[in-house]
Amino acid sequence: MVDIDSLRRDWVGKEFHRAEYTIKEQQVLDYAASCGDTDPRYSDPSNPDFEAHPTFIGCLGNTRDAMTPKDFPDLGRGRSIDGGKSVEILAPIRPGDRLSARSEIADIYAKTGRSGTMLFIVHRLNFFNQNDEPVATVDLRQIKAVEG
């Protein structure tokens, strides 16, 4: 079993990565369409309030660099599972916006479930727009199977 106290002490709360994303109109439209969301705010570019679907932001930052610090310990080859997402929208995100995502690990803990002993790593991404205004906070809860 990994030393969770040590992991928490070394990694929680420290910003370790920044990435840039440009929001594209077609991508925003495809996203809403695939979710079956027909609200014109998310599906009609001629709508004056047209913006990205509120859950769209949860897709950005799903990369190894954005989620895992370079020197983070290897936790084995057990499968990683998406344990859940929390999205808080602070301001509209519109096509053409250039977003900056700042990554940190918000929490690390262990628990047991139907699949065995699991390590939960909560990755937090704070998103800012081109004016450096906060637009969203996303928590991604990654589950990693560990040896009991």
């Binding site: 979710c35 969301d37 027909t38 769209f56 997402k85 929390s86 999205v87 929208i89």
Partner: peptide
């Protein structure tokens, strides 16, 4: 999560989801 948001928008068109935690 997108499907659940779509259900909310279908129930209340024009509603703004401030936070969604799944």
């Amino acid at each position: 999560q997108g499907f659940l948001a779509a259900m909310i928008h279908q129930w209340a068109p024009g509603a703004k989801i401030r936070k969604l935690d799944t």
